[in-house]
């Protein structure tokens, strides 16, 4: 039950942001599913290994791979699916808490939350970069043969 609930919440969340970013109409559902699958994988991995960073990385990697596959399928740039897809994972609240801690002179908290925020951003970026370079090398191999 918890599983379905999380899937549904993140699905609506991704679709909402996709429309907020004015996505092409025929890609709304696809981007929503991408984001929801990424979020569910993040939750599962975080529960199993109790590591947020690993969970975020696996979620972002899933979003990246799904995005590249959908992009090839529907002949659109992969960004169209990846940007809304990573929105639930993205450390927006972390950025805000870091800056709030700095304005309130709680520098220890700022360092703690800030490092985690940056690591989460690095994990997402790594997931996306790995998937996009994988898709590029697959394209190159296919073109050669």
């Amino acid at each position: 039950m918890e599983f379905i609930k999380q899937f549904f919440f993140s699905f609506i969340c991704t679709i909402g942001f996709a429309i907020f970013f004015s996505i092409p109409k025929n890609s709304i559902l696809k981007s929503g599913i991408t984001g929801a699958i990424g979020w569910v994988i993040y939750i599962q991995i975080t529960n199993i290994f109790s590591s947020t960073i690993l969970g975020i990385f696996c979620g972002a990697l899933t979003v990246g791979i799904l995005g590249e596959m959908l992009a090839r399928n529907s002949k659109k740039p992969a960004t169209v699916f990846i940007i809304p897809g990573i929105v639930p994972l993205v450390p927006g609240s972390g950025m805000y808490y870091t800056m709030l801690a700095i304005t309130e002179k709680r520098f220890n908290d700022a360092a703690n939350i800030g490092t985690e925020t940056i690591f989460i951003a690095v994990a997402i970026a790594m997931g996306i970069i790995i998937s996009s370079s994988l898709s590029k090398s697959i394209k190159r191999v296919k073109n050669k043969s």
Partner: peptide
């Protein structure tokens, strides 16, 4: 508050920044 400021916070921007730097 966290929900309400979500459309404003720069989550995508910080991720793109790291991604640009890495490439």
């Amino acid at each position: 508050i966290i929900g309400a400021i979500m459309p404003l916070v720069p989550g995508v921007a910080i991720t793109n920044a790291i991604r640009d730097t890495m490439s």
